[in-house]
């Protein structure tokens, strides 16, 4: 149960990245999962190669990937705003492939484990062994969501980001540097992906295909109603739990397709997703 919740949180965080970027710039970033992979690898590199402490490495990895996201927006993606969705999809999938091959050159294609302060420790809670790694994911997600919510609701820059994504032209008229806002949104969304990557690393091992989790997160975003932030999180957790239960109760193999089955059913029955029409409000 807890494991499903934790994995669901990761899906939710990556889906959150999808949604943030989509709401602001109407681009769907299929490289989101690969940003997660980069985050995990960067953290691993700092911890294992350079012997930096876990928390410092965590912060460095997030900052670097966020910066990378902003640069990506400023140099490449800004140019294709207004082009057909198709070319955006191809471009971001291509970028994802580039990141993967870059990772395999830089860090090799082996599978690594990231040692963390929570590794292989568990607490007995109400008679059930609760592993710290999963708890760290859930706590991390909750804290991150609270921080993001506060940022978007109470700070001037956060409000300006909301404004830019709701009405770009009007935001320009207000003197808001819209391009900078979009780069910042990319940075936040890449940073969130990196956080998800670092949190996920101790549970799932790091390899260059870690990014394919992005596809399941995409299903989560669609399930929640693309464009809804609470939807993305709830969608992620739902998918995580569905996976867990289908692994436990259904024949072997269902676990991995469960997310896509859900995606198909949602698209057929309720294409706007769970929160689509109602909560398309906050950034």
């Amino acid at each position: 149960m807890l494991n499903g919740l934790a994995v669901g949180c990761i899906y939710g965080l990556v889906a959150l990245g999808f949604v943030l970027i989509y709401k602001a710039t109407e681009l769907v970033n299929f490289a989101q999962g690969d940003l997660l992979m980069l985050g995990a690898f960067t953290c691993y590199m700092f911890v294992v190669w350079y012997g930096v402490g876990y928390w410092v490495a965590f912060a460095l990895a997030v900052a670097l990937v966020a910066l990378f996201g902003a640069v990506l927006d400023a140099t490449i993606l800004r140019r294709i705003i207004g082009q057909p969705q198709f070319s955006v999809v191809m471009l971001t999938i291509g970028l994802g492939a580039i990141f993967r091959s870059f990772a395999s050159i830089a860090w090799g294609s082996e599978i690594y484990t990231l040692p963390t302060p929570f590794s292989a420790r568990a607490t007995r809670l109400a008679g059930v062994a609760v592993s710290h790694e999963y708890v760290s994911i859930i706590i991390g997600t909750v804290v991150l969501c609270a921080v993001l919510y506060a940022f978007f609701t109470f700070t001037r820059i956060g409000l300006a980001m909301q404004a830019s994504s709701q009405n770009q032209l009007a935001a320009y008229y207000m003197g808001i540097p819209v391009k900078l806002m979009f780069s910042l949104i990319w940075a936040i969304s890449a940073g969130v992906a990196a956080i998800a990557g670092v949190l996920l690393a101790p549970v799932s091992l790091i390899d260059i295909n870690l990014g394919f989790i992005g596809l399941k997160a995409f299903a989560a975003a669609v399930l929640g109603g693309f464009g809804s932030i609470p939807g993305a999180l709830v969608g992620g957790i739902t998918i995580g739990l569905i996976e867990l239960f289908s692994g436990a109760y259904l024949p072997q193999g269902f676990k991995d397709v469960a997310a896509y089955v859900v995606l198909l059913v949602v698209l057929a029955v309720r294409p706007q997703g769970m929160f689509g029409a109602i909560t398309r409000k906050k950034v």
Partner: peptide, 12 residues
């Protein structure tokens, strides 16, 4: 500039 058609931020 007060644009034509108001252009307020609808969800703020």
């Amino acid at each position: 500039h007060v644009p034509e058609g108001r252009e307020v931020f609808p969800f703020l």
